[in-house]
């Protein structure tokens, strides 16, 4: 029996927002794969929960007339990986989500929960940061849009105010069109493990020249982070093994990995360099996943 004080099931956004406003101490539960684990560990014991999992309008993936892609926060990782729009335009996001947990987890775990949980290890985190995902946060009184890079405020902390729900995750056309990308999860096991380092790379190529470059990591800092120093350095470079290595080296100026039982700081630094280098080289040679 989970130590929950009340459990309310909302079936529309409006209902959930109303309930959240009237019960400001209550906590949102989507699939519960983070929330229930925390309750089990006593970290959120006695929580009052409002379930949003039955809100159908939050489960869609759509491309609007401007070419922006809208991902409902309740989209689960199996759906994300198999969705035709994601396969066509953001295959690396789907593939990255496919590294989460195991199939049973991916069948339930939501992308919105992955974001709002605020873990630096979130397997959608670094790719969404690279994609500059725009998050729509809705409360009864206000709707605001926050770029995901600003949404993460610290380890396990996000800029979600009382009464707010994440209602849309938008990838703008300019942020994905023409890019190739790849997410690498480095962990001790191939499944059912948390990343030691997660690395997302996106590139726009002009022949063998890097026209635009984006790089982000998970577990390299308290939150998933972009790498402005390495990105600026990479733009305009020609794709060579040496340059790929140099970009990976540069990334060390952007990150602040720590020691943990999963890996030492030195080990993480090595991964940060090598994973970027390998991903760049693979993308340069037609590997990885690309916007079709």
């Amino acid at each position: 029996m989970y130590d929950i004080s009340t459990y309310e099931e909302a079936t529309t956004i409006q209902e959930a927002l109303q309930y959240l406003k009237e019960n400001p101490s209550s906590k949102v539960i989507a699939a519960g794969s983070d929330v229930l684990i925390k309750i089990r560990e006593g970290k959120m014991a006695g929580a009052s929960l409002v379930s949003i999992i039955k809100i159908e309008e939050l489960k869609k993936i759509e491309k609007d007339k401007d070419g922006n892609i809208h991902i409902g926060p309740l989209v689960n990782f199996t759906q994300l990986e198999e969705d035709p729009i994601i396969r066509e335009h953001l295959p690396y996001l789907g593939q990255g989500g496919g590294t989460m947990g195991g199939p049973q987890l991916r069948n339930i775990a939501s992308i919105g929960g992955n974001i709002c949980n605020g873990a630096t290890s979130a397997d959608s985190g670094s790719t969404l940061v690279c994609l500059n995902a725009q998050l729509t946060l809705t409360s009864l009184d206000l709707e605001r849009v926050v770029p995901i890079g600003e949404f993460y405020t610290g380890p396990g902390r996000v800029d979600l105010k009382a009464g707010e729900l994440l209602t849309d995750i938008v990838i703008l056309r300019q942020d994905y069109e023409g890019y190739v990308g790849k997410y690498t999860k480095f962990a001790q096991r191939k499944s059912m493990d948390i990343a030691t380092i997660g690395c997302a790379v996106m590139m726009k190529l002009q022949g063998r020249v890097i026209e635009d470059f984006r790089l982000a990591y998970g577990v390299a800092a308290p939150t998933p982070v972009r790498c402005p120093v390495a990105e600026a350095y990479a733009k305009g470079l020609t794709l060579t093994k040496e340059n790929a290595r140099a970009i990976g080296e540069k990334a060390l100026e952007d990150v602040s990995p720590r020691d943990s039982w999963r890996g030492s700081k030195a080990y993480r630094e090595q991964l940060i360099k090598v994973l970027a280098e390998r991903a760049i080289w693979e993308l340069a040679n037609g590997g990885g996943e690309q916007d079709a």
């Binding site: 989970y2 459990y7 229930l36 089990r40 039955k54 195991g102 199939p103 049973q104 987890l105 069948n107």
Partner: peptide, 25 residues
């Protein structure tokens, strides 16, 4: 806690871990 799969059941033809699946769902 969702890690071993011993509790796996199918809900709407998809495998899920019954231990972290609220019954009411």
């Amino acid at each position: 806690k969702g890690e071993c799969g011993a509790c796996t059941v199918l809900v709407e033809h998809n495998a899920v871990n019954a231990c972290i699946f609220p019954a009411g769902k």
